[in-house]
Structure formats: structure tokens, C-alpha cells
């Protein structure tokens, strides 16, 4: 005997509450960023110029597109276009992988230059630049972790769609995974200009 009920709105509301906590989690890093930016404005510009805008820009487009595909997947399942829905999920996962590969190359490049947390090179560049890269690595790292979790969630749900456990009648799991994925996108929307584009 256990408690059975169905309330998709409640399920979604719970997910939104969780997203609020995620935003606050990231905001801790953004507060540190804002304070460091006004403390070391010049150093932040110097450091930001060392990041490759093309890596960041490409990843922005990738994430925005993946947000589109997962949003389309909801409409697809609502219209009972199961095949299309699964394809859109797979596309999203693919874009997530592209994002991570891109990130891998970007970080490899920076690490090869000796720029990584607690490195000698970084210490020689002074406290402002060090602070920028520490924050960049931790924020982007935490974001990358969310990409990984989000992609896993969508994979699980895509399998459930294929198995008919998530249907056009009951798709709140897909909706919630999509919500999580959009959050990943939202964080990047702020992360990108703040780290790659300051001048």
C-alpha cells in the first residue's frame, strides 16, 4: 500500500523549485566574479583576452541549438510524434557531447599554456589574473558537470520514450529533464559574455 497520485503540474513545480536552488548555487560563483571584477578590472580584461572567443562562441551556439531541439521534443511528444521526439532527444545528447568535446579541446589548450588552477604560470601573472582563471575553471567545471548530468537524464528519458513509458499522455519526466537542460543553457548565457567577452 503506498501513496499513488498524479499531478503533473505539481511535478513540474517541484522541478522549478529545484532549478531555483541551482541558480542560487551558481550565483555564489557569480557574486565572487562580480566582486573580483570591480577589484581587478584591468587584470580581468587581460585574462579574458587569453580565452578563445571562438571556443566559447561555438559552444554558445551548440547549447542554444540543443535547447531548441529539446524544446521541440516536447511539442513532438505532445503531438504523439514519438520517432521525431526520440530523434530530437538524440540530437540534444549529440550536441551535449559536442559541447563537452569542444570544452575538452579548449581546456587542453589552456592547460598546455600552463594556465590551470594553482599553476606556476598563473601565480606569476598576479592575483587578479589568477582569480579570473580560478573562477573560470570552477564555474565552467561546475557547468560542465551539469551538462553531463543533463545529458544523462535526457538519455534515460529518451530510452523511456522508446519503451513507451513516457507517452504523449504522460510526459512530465521529459518536461522536467528538458527544464533541467534549459537551466544548463541559462547558466551558459551569462557565463559566456562574463568570461569571454569582457573588454
Amino acid at each position: 500500500m503506498s501513496f499513488e497520485h498524479r499531478d503533473d503540474t505539481g511535478d513540474r513545480f517541484g522541478m522549478w523549485l529545484f532549478l531555483y536552488t541551482e541558480v542560487i548555487l551558481f550565483s555564489g560563483l557569480f557574486i565572487l566574479y562580480a566582486i573580483a571584477l570591480i577589484t581587478y578590472p584591468q587584470e580581468y580584461i587581460t585574462a579574458s583576452n587569453k580565452l578563445n572567443i571562438w571556443f566559447g562562441g561555438a559552444n554558445t551556439v551548440v547549447l542554444l541549438t540543443s535547447s531548441l531541439t529539446i524544446a521541440l521534443a516536447i511539442t513532438a511528444i505532445q503531438r504523439n510524434q514519438i520517432r521525431l521526439c526520440i530523434n530530437l532527444c538524440v540530437a540534444t545528447i549529440g550536441l551535449a557531447i559536442v559541447f563537452l568535446i569542444n570544452k575538452y579541446f579548449e581546456w587542453s589548450h589552456e592547460i598546455s599554456l600552463g594556465i590551470y588552477p594553482a599553476s606556476e604560470t598563473l601565480r606569476d601573472m598576479g592575483p587578479g589574473v589568477t582569480s579570473f582563471f580560478n573562477l573560470y575553471y570552477f564555474t565552467a567545471g561546475l557547468h560542465g558537470l551539469h551538462v553531463l548530468i543533463g545529458a544523462t537524464l535526457i538519455t534515460v528519458v529518451a530510452v523511456m520514450v522508446a519503451k513507451g513509458k513516457v507517452t504523449s499522455d504522460r510526459y512530465v519526466l521529459l518536461e522536467n529533464s528538458a527544464l533541467y537542460w534549459h537551466l544548463v543553457d541559462l547558466v551558459w548565457i551569462f557565463l559566456f559574455p562574463l568570461y569571454y567577452l569582457i573588454i
Binding site: 566582486i35 573580483a36 592575483p127 579570473f132
Partner: peptide, 9 residues
């Protein structure tokens, strides 16, 4: 990130 030497506070 809170270390003075790394620009923290």
C-alpha cells in the same frame, strides 16, 4: 578563491 595571494578575500 578566498586566498589573498590568488586575488581572493
Amino acid at each position: 578563491l578566498f586566498d589573498v595571494a590568488s586575488g581572493g578575500d
